[in-house]
Amino acid sequence: MSVGDYIRDSQIWKSIFRHPAPYDRRNRVVVMLTNFFLHLHPVSIKQHGIALSYTWCMGGITFFLFLVETITGVLLMFYYRPTLEWAFNDILALRDVTTLGIMREIHRWGAHAMVITVWLHMYRVFLTGSYKPPREFNWVVGVILLKLTLLLSFTGYLLPWDQLAIWAITVGSNMARATPVLGHEGPGFQFLNLGGYDLITNASDARFLLLGSRFVGEETLNRFYILHCVAIPLASAGLIAIHFWRVRKDGGISQPL
């Protein structure tokens, strides 16, 4: 009896994988049904639906990059402190002295790649008409996920707390100042006033809500840190689950009707 057989015969192995190795047709079906990670997939799939020149694999890569970002991001969170005193120095140390500081490079390049792959996924879904009935609503979920991907990248942009970071966020968030009605330089902010006093000022408008301050400062760093590490990833994870579930329920990958 070989070592491999010995392991596969053990009680431990059998308690985890409840079927023999997927070498024959029956077990290849069973593995898809009994494995938690694989049960996202159907047991069998139309041949054209797995052709790379049809799918471009961009949705799958986006999801994989999301996982990469989560793992490298959690590792970075062990090291990085989101305060004015430490944020920049921690990133500097990650670059120069920290073991496995390359996690930051992977995290940043992975984020850029994710933005590109999510666009290409949308591009492919549009070009194959895959948003047409019955998949209309999943396209809507996808648009929200696209938006969340951009917001994830945007909030993460601030965390290194260098010149690139704060000025990119300053430029980006200055727009919120001009939000109609809710921004203190937006059209119609005068409508919200009480007895002649403006309710919308630079300390109470949409930009203040985003930054937690009248300019990009420590409150902003904290706010963006929470958004980047907790709030948006949770929202994305939930929507990704719905997105995948609906792909299955709407009949799998799109195909000619």
Binding site: L92, R95, E105, W109, S153, F154, D162, W167
Partner: peptide
């Protein structure tokens, strides 16, 4: 490979008084 070949950018520490020209969004 990308991470080894290219270092992620890190500029000078943030300064609210030194506005870069041009200031670009992501």
């Amino acid at each position: 490979l990308w991470g080894i070949a290219l270092q992620a950018p890190l500029e000078e520490p943030a300064s609210a008084v030194k506005t870069p020209n041009p200031s670009k969004a992501p």
